[in-house]
Amino acid sequence: MTATGQSLMQMANGTKCMIAAIDLSSESRERLFELGLLVGTTIEVVRYAPLGDPVEIKVRGYRLMIPRSEAERIFVVPPIVENKG
């Protein structure tokens, strides 16, 4: 646990949370940003793959899978405001 919250991988299925920090290479960060995962975006953990990796999340109304190794370095906090949609 860090000052910026918990890792995304610690979230159970169905948890809604808000991205607080993304501690990844700038290329990966940019890609996540472009796909709509910005700091402050609310996401939902949908489920983990049958073999435990990757994790499926819901963001801005669509579903994305993120490998465990990256999800571990995305830090989240409980959502402040419930996003519409």
């Binding site: 990966s28 990757p54 499926e56 994305l64 993120i66 990256e70």
Partner: peptide, 9 residues
């Protein structure tokens, strides 16, 4: 290994 970000449409 680049991050595999795949959409689940």
């Amino acid at each position: 290994i680049p991050m595999l970000l795949m959409e689940l449409p």
